[in-house]
Design a protein around this nucleic acid. Structure first.
Lengths: 201, 201
DNA sequence: ATGCTAACTGGTCGGCCGGTCAATTATTTT
DNA sequence: AAAATAATTGACCGGCCGACCAGTTAGCAT
C-alpha cells in the first residue's frame, strides 16, 4: 500500500514550488522576486528549485504556461457550452467572462506582466480562442442577430479588453469619483455594449 | 554672454538622465533595470545619478511624476478646449484620447507598470481628471443628449479603459486573426460605443 | 539485499547590485 | 583674486544575486 506520510513526493514538491512562485511572480513580477524568496515561500531549498526547473527563468515560463493553459481550457469550455449564437447569449458570454476574471485575479495580473514583457508565447492559444469567438459572432451577424457592419474580431476585442482593463487597473480607477463596484460597472457597460451591437430596427 | 559649449550644465544632465531612465524603465520596468545600464544610457557615471536623484527609487518616482504631469496637462487641455457637451463632441473626445495614447506609447506603458506595482501616487490628478470628464457627461445627460441611465463615471471609464487596453496589450492582440489596424478598430469601437450612449428615439 | 536513480541539502562561488566617498574640476559668489 | 559651492569622476564597499556542486538519503527495480 502507499504510505500517506511518505517523506518524498517530487510531484507535490513541484506543485508547491509552482504555487509559491505563482503567488510571488503575480504580486511582484519576475525580476524583483529572488530565488531565496521563492525557496522560503515554497518551503524548500534554492537548489531544489534548480533541480526541478533548471533556472529562475524556466520556472517563470512554467508558471506562465500553466496559467495560460488553465485560462485557455476555461475559455474553450465556455465557448463550447454556448449554443446557437444570438444577442442574449453574447450578453451571457460577457457576464461569464467578466466573472471569470473576477474570480481569477492572478490570471489577469499574469497577463499584464507578460504583455509588458512583450511575451507572445501564449499567442497561438489566444489566437485560436479569438478566432473561435469571432466566428461565433460572424454567425450571429449572418442571421441578422447582431449588427453586421463591425469586424467580429473588433467586437469581441472590445468587451474582452474592457473586462481585462477593469480588473488590471483596478487599483487605479477604484479611487475615481463616482465609480461603482464590479457589478454596477458591468451593468452599465452591458447597457452601452449591448445597445451598440444589436441591429437597429 | 552665455557660452554655448559650456562644459557643465546640470539641468541638461538631469534631463539626459531622466530621458534615458524613462526609456529604460518604460521598456523593462523598474526592477530589471540597473544603475549601470542607466548610467551608460545617459552617458554619465552612476555616482552622478545618485548626486542628482539620490537613489534608483527616487529616479523612478521622478520619471513617473514627470510623465503623469505631462499626461494630466494634456488631458486637462483637451477637456477645457471641449465646448458644450453633446454626443458629437464625446465622439471627438474619444478619438482625441485614442490618438493621444497612440502618439505617446511610453505613457501607456508607464501607467501599466504603475498599475501592477499598485502605485496610486497619480491618484489625485487622475481623480480630478475623471471627475471633470464625468461632470461633462452628466451635463450632456441632463440636456438629453446622452442616455441618462448609465453612471457618467462608468461611461467615461468604458472608453478610457478600452483605448488604454488597446495600446497596452497591443503585442498580444495584434496577432489575433481578423484584427485590423488602429484606425479600423477605433472606427468599429466608435460604432458600438456611440450607438450605445446616445438616447433611443 | 543490493545497487541505481532521482530527490534533496548545505556550503560556496564569482559577479554584479545599489550605494558611498574622497578627490578633482567647473561655476558662482563675494 | 579668492573663497565657497556645486558638478562630476573613479575607485571602492558590503551584500546579495543566481547558480553550481559534492555529498546524503529515500524510493524503486531486480
Amino acid at each position: 500500500m502507499t504510505n500517506p506520510t511518505t517523506t518524498r513526493d517530487p510531484d507535490l514538491t513541484r506543485l508547491r514550488i509552482m504555487d509559491a512562485a505563482t503567488d510571488l511572480f503575480v504580486a511582484h513580477g519576475f525580476s524583483s522576486v529572488t530565488m531565496s524568496q521563492l525557496a522560503k515561500a515554497a518551503g524548500v531549498t534554492k537548489s531544489l528549485i534548480h533541480h526541478h526547473f533548471g533556472s529562475k527563468e524556466k520556472l517563470w515560463e512554467a508558471v506562465k504556461e500553466h496559467a495560460f493553459e488553465q485560462y485557455f481550457r476555461a475559455q474553450m469550455e465556455m465557448l463550447q457550452e454556448a449554443g446557437e449564437p444570438d444577442a442574449a447569449l453574447l450578453r451571457e458570454s460577457v457576464v461569464a467572462y467578466f466573472h471569470y476574471l473576477q474570480a481569477n485575479p492572478s490570471a489577469v495580473r499574469l497577463f499584464a506582466w507578460t504583455h509588458l514583457e512583450g511575451d507572445t508565447s501564449c499567442g497561438d492559444m489566444d489566437a485560436q480562442l479569438m478566432g473561435a469567438g469571432a466566428e461565433w459572432v460572424r454567425q450571429a451577424q449572418k442571421r441578422g442577430l447582431l449588427r453586421a457592419d463591425v469586424n467580429p474580431a473588433h467586437l469581441v476585442a472590445t468587451f474582452v479588453m474592457t473586462c481585462t482593463q477593469w480588473f488590471e487597473a483596478r487599483c487605479h480607477h477604484q479611487h475615481w469619483p463616482g465609480m461603482g463596484d464590479d457589478e454596477a460597472f458591468l451593468d452599465d457597460f452591458l447597457k452601452i455594449f449591448m445597445e451598440g451591437v444589436v441591429p437597429r430596427d
